[in-house]
Simulated scan of single mutants.
Amino acid sequence: MATLMEDEVFKAFSTYAAIVILKMLLMAPMTAYYRMTRGAFSNEEDVALKPAEERKKLLRTHPDVERVRRCHQNDLESVVPFVMVGLLYALTGPELSTALLHFRVFAGSRIFHTISYVGALPQPSRALSWTAGMLVTFSMAYRVLSTVLLL
C-alpha cells in the first residue's frame, strides 16, 4: 500500500477523484439552497411547520431547483464510473502525462457541465462537456481492458 501511495499516477488520480467527488457532494447543499431561495419543496415534511395555505404554495417544482437536481443526478451517473474505472486505470501503469490528461479533462468537463447546467447555457455546451467526460471514462476503460483482458 505504501508503494501505491508513492506512485505519481495514483496520486494524480486521487487528487482529481477527490475534486470531482467534492464537486458532486456540493450539489446537495446547492439543491437545498435553491429550494429555500426559490420556495420550492418536494416533500410534505420539508414544509410541515408552515401554515396550511403556505404549504400548498411551497410544495411545487421550480425550473432552477430542477436544473440543479438533475445536474446532481448526472454527476452520480458520471463521477461514480469515473472513480471506479479511473482506479483500475491508475493501476495499469499508464504514462503520467497521459493519465493527467485523462484526469484533467474529466474534472474540467464535470465542472463546466455544472456551470452550463446550472447557468442554463445554450446547447451544445452541456452536451459537449458531458461527452468529453464520457469519452475519457471510455478511454480509460479501453486501456484497462486492453491491458488485463482475460476471458
Rank of each mutant, 00 (worst) to 15 (best):
L4T: 13
L4R: 13
M5T: 12
E6W: 02
E6K: 14
E6N: 12
D7V: 05
D7W: 05
D7I: 03
E8M: 05
V9A: 08
F10V: 12
K11N: 05
A12H: 03
F13N: 05
S14E: 02
S14V: 07
T15N: 07
Y16H: 14
Y16G: 04
A18Y: 03
I19W: 06
V20E: 04
V20L: 06
I21H: 10
K23W: 06
M24E: 02
L25H: 01
L25K: 00
M27Q: 12
P29V: 07
P29Y: 06
M30V: 10
M30K: 10
T31I: 15
T31C: 11
A32H: 02
Y34M: 14
M36S: 14
R38T: 13
G39Q: 12
G39C: 02
G39N: 11
F41A: 03
N43K: 15
D46T: 04
V47A: 05
V47H: 09
V47W: 05
A48R: 11
A48Q: 11
L49E: 15
K50C: 12
P51Q: 03
A52Q: 14
E53L: 09
E54D: 11
E54L: 12
K56F: 00
R60K: 14
R60A: 10
R60V: 08
R60E: 09
R60G: 08
T61S: 15
P63F: 05
D64K: 12
D64T: 13
D64L: 13
V65T: 08
V65S: 03
E66M: 11
R70E: 11
R70K: 14
C71S: 06
N74L: 05
N74G: 08
D75L: 06
D75S: 08
D75P: 04
E77W: 04
E77M: 08
S78N: 15
S78H: 14
V79T: 07
F82G: 09
V83M: 12
M84G: 13
M84D: 00
M84F: 15
M84K: 00
V85D: 08
V85C: 08
L87C: 13
T92I: 07
G93H: 04
P94I: 03
P94W: 04
E95P: 07
L96R: 10
A99S: 11
A99P: 07
A99G: 10
A99V: 07
L100D: 01
L101Y: 09
L101A: 14
F103Y: 15
R104T: 02
V105D: 05
V105N: 05
F106E: 09
F106Q: 08
F106H: 10
F106P: 03
A107N: 03
A107C: 03
R110P: 02
I111N: 03
I111E: 04
F112P: 00
F112I: 09
F112W: 13
H113E: 02
T114H: 01
I115D: 00
S116I: 00
L121V: 11
L121W: 14
P122K: 12
P122H: 07
Q123W: 01
Q123M: 10
P124R: 05
P124V: 08
P124I: 06
S125A: 15
S125V: 11
L128G: 01
L128Q: 05
L128A: 14
S129I: 01
S129M: 08
W130E: 04
T131Q: 01
T131F: 15
G133R: 07
V136Q: 06
V136K: 03
T137M: 01
T137E: 04
